[in-house]
Design a protein around this nucleic acid. Sequence first.
DNA 1: ACCTGAACACCGTTCAAGT
DNA 2: ACCTGAACACCGTTCAAGT
Lengths: 206, 206
Amino acid sequence: MRLTRDQVVAGGLDLLDEVGLDGLTMRRLAASLGVQNGATYWHFSSKQALLEAMADRMLADVAAGLDAGLPWDGRIVETARRLRRALLSRRDGARLFSGVFFPLPNALAYGETMIGVLRDAGLGARDAVWAVDALTYYVVGHAAEEQLAAAVPEAAADRLTAALDPERHPHMLAAADDLAAPHPEEHFTYGLELLIEGIRGKIRQL
Amino acid sequence: MRLTRDQVVAGGLDLLDEVGLDGLTMRRLAASLGVQNGATYWHFSSKQALLEAMADRMLADVAAGLDAGLPWDGRIVETARRLRRALLSRRDGARLFSGVFFPLPNALAYGETMIGVLRDAGLGARDAVWAVDALTYYVVGHAAEEQLAAAVPEAAADRLTAALDPERHPHMLAAADDLAAPHPEEHFTYGLELLIEGIRGKIRQL
DNA sequence: ACCTGAACACCGTTCAAGT
DNA sequence: ACCTGAACACCGTTCAAGT
């Protein structure tokens, strides 16, 4: 059976879950597909091109079928959540996405949806784009940090507490339980609401 | 003259400006320091350890001497700007920082300062930490995108306009001039204000 | 204490040659 | 059209041996 482009992408995503982004090599991928080393280069001109295809595949359903009955802020929350879920669906998914240049089909669909919601809410073109940029940086940054913390199981927590000094970091020590973020969903929602509240302010000023 | 740890870090940062994060190799660094390949490993146990030291050095003055006379929102803006400037001070500085695990001295000082400002403003421990997390994801994400766009000079713009379809991306096309972000400072301030406005909302609820 | 020299086990990418 | 086999030019890391 010959290899298809889709199989290479799917194999890449499966391998990503197995070995993480740093362990993902073209040679391992070829091996896991039962093929020789150079074979994948017939389907993708470079590793970067493959990573882009993988990133976009990961975002497949982010912008599909958004409930038009929701108010604008509900639609923003829903779409941000979908992006978040997509990024978290694969190991190192957020890092994979942020290492890739933006204009990919599903990423564009996400952006277009988000901007559309804010324009419906009354924002001008520039405000809408810039607000979506802020939302996106937040969602991606949050997911990346969450996956980074998950990747460094115990060493992370130990190293953090070791680095914190009661003299110089009283505030961080006082919030140590919330720093380690054992409540990622609540944590995510908190920052998302901050941004949405800021957008509400902009809409009020219209 | 023998090599010092500091010289290795400084050489790493200079090389970063020259060749970018992807071009930064231990071998090139050794060559630029006029030393043999393995020599840097006496000063740093791994490339990752060196990258961490470089990232922290980059953040050296972010938390020093903040004007206590400013209102809380002015202090947040000032500190966020300093982090931004530090990240932009070196090529791929934002990507360097986000690839490194958080608890480094200057990064901790930054976090402590930010949390302190929000606690002064009246927020509880958890709210303050979570709000600072949101601010930091935003600052780093914004700087990373800005440096990524700067790294792909013209190909980026071309590829974006080529990918945009009037049928499917009317909103993005309508905002094309603001998408390419020829106004990075204004763009940065816009999103930062969104978050600060959200924090104002939290403080009002107290 | 600090560095050299040389090796080990990998990489991404290319490309003639096969089928 | 799609893949193999083999090579090229690199990597990070280790470590005996030198000074």
